[in-house]
Design a protein around this nucleic acid. Structure first.
Ligand SMILES: [Mn+2]
Ligand SMILES: [Mn+2]
Ligand SMILES: [Mn+2]
Ligand SMILES: [Mn+2]
Lengths: 217, 217
DNA sequence: AAATATTTTTAGACAAGACTAAAAATATTA
DNA sequence: TAATATTTTTAGTCTTGTCTAAAAATATTT
């Protein structure tokens, strides 16, 4: 049995190290999970003991196949619940993460598979993140960052890298949502800002914002 | 903040003592929650400390208004989730309890209220148990036990007192479901068994079974 | 009312998961 | 390469929730 706490560590390792394939540092995990390095060391040992992680002292941790599948399963649940909250329960994309953090730990294979069917097998969550399938495989993100798109071209907003509250609220405020068609107008080299056009209006976005917007062409 | 474990104790006290209004014994709680009396004593003290329970040593526990509301809120969540699982995710009534035991602890007022609306404000769960409203009030059960119905009369199966796996599976096997119209044919005083008739067939049920079936007329 | 049985509480221990402070290992800089 | 800085681990402590065994209180029998 994998505990709730263990699941959170598995997720952190998965997210920090290319789906858990490359080793990540104790400190990086501590920061992500908002705990202390000593707590991380303790937990890493437990994960290694349970054959969920590969651990060599002072060399960081990566996930075993078993650990990677366990992590992907938690992420699958997280993202499916986020879709449920937005599509069925009228939540907006900036309200769902904390609740999904709780729901992702509910244990029932039938539950998650039925939920998947009920939602009609979505491939992406409300932030554009891919939903792993039952085998833990993600469809790779094929969208590209808006800064890499040449002036005059347009694309559909399909992924936001930062899905924090503040950023999502910024997007809400500026009427930008997943699925919107955006045209790149003009890049300003002085501050790397970008002027863009949506169906409804023109707008200038900063470098910080642009770095988090991904379009599919 | 009420912890998961505290919520389970509140629920047990609520269920054992007329919605928590009458004092229940340490042992009764221990049995219900499948723990030991000493653990119960410890937890009871914490609940009293938090003003959720009234506790006098050696005299049992009851719930304060605050405790009763907290318990009702957990039960409300449990039953709404059971409705969700049956109505939306194709679960049958004998499969939902254990998952609802997990889901009932998810903390989000908006979540449960949106779920309530999504399910169109159900008043009863898949076992006929009433769903407390936001204020913690239950509509009283108005169904009566099948043994109290006179021969020749009929009613609609609207509540099963025992909602354990084995009993629900027995009902499945005999094609008895909530909402079915049942006619009482003949009471047999020798063993208190009852012969009944459904839309599809006649059948004899034992005293043990009859005691758990409630009809509304 | 005593004796006996049962229930409840207390005392002390344990596991999980977290923390602080100190020691050990590794990385960086001079 | 030696000195210094940073990261990681270890050692020891704490809290929550659980347990067993023993003591104390209450209930039931004789
Ligand atoms: Mn999320
Ligand atoms: Mn997401
Ligand atoms: Mn139930
Ligand atoms: Mn129920």
């Amino acid at each position: 049995m994998v505990t709730l706490s263990e699941e959170n560590y598995l997720k952190a390792i998965y997210h920090l190290g290319k789906e858990g394939t490359i080793a990540v540092s104790t400190n990086a995990i501590a920061e992500k999970i908002e705990s202390k390095a000593s707590s991380v060391t303790d937990m890493i040992k437990k994960l290694a003991e349970k054959n969920l992680a590969n651990y060599v002292k002072y060399q960081g941790v990566s996930l075993t196949n078993e650990g990677r599948l366990a992590a992907a399963s938690v992420i699958r649940k997280h993202r499916l619940w986020e879709v449920f909250l937005v599509d069925k329960l009228n939540f907006s994309w900036d309200e769902v993460h904390d609740i999904a953090e709780q729901l992702e730990h509910i244990k029932s294979l039938k539950l998650i598979n039925e939920l998947d069917a009920f939602l009609q097998y979505p491939t992406h969550d409300p932030h554009g993140d891919p939903i792993p399938d039952k085998q833990g495989n993600c469809s790779p993100i094929k969208s590209i960052n808006i800064l890499e798109i040449e002036e005059g071209k347009e694309g559909v907003l399909s992924f936001v890298k930062d899905s924090s509250d503040v950023f999502l609220k910024y997007l809400n405020k500026n009427n930008l949502a997943l699925g919107d068609t955006i045209k790149v107008l003009d890049f300003e080299p002085f501050d790397n800002s970008l002027s863009i056009e949506t169906k409804t209006k023109k707008l200038i976005i900063s470098k910080e914002v642009a770095q988090n917007l991904y379009l599919s062409l």
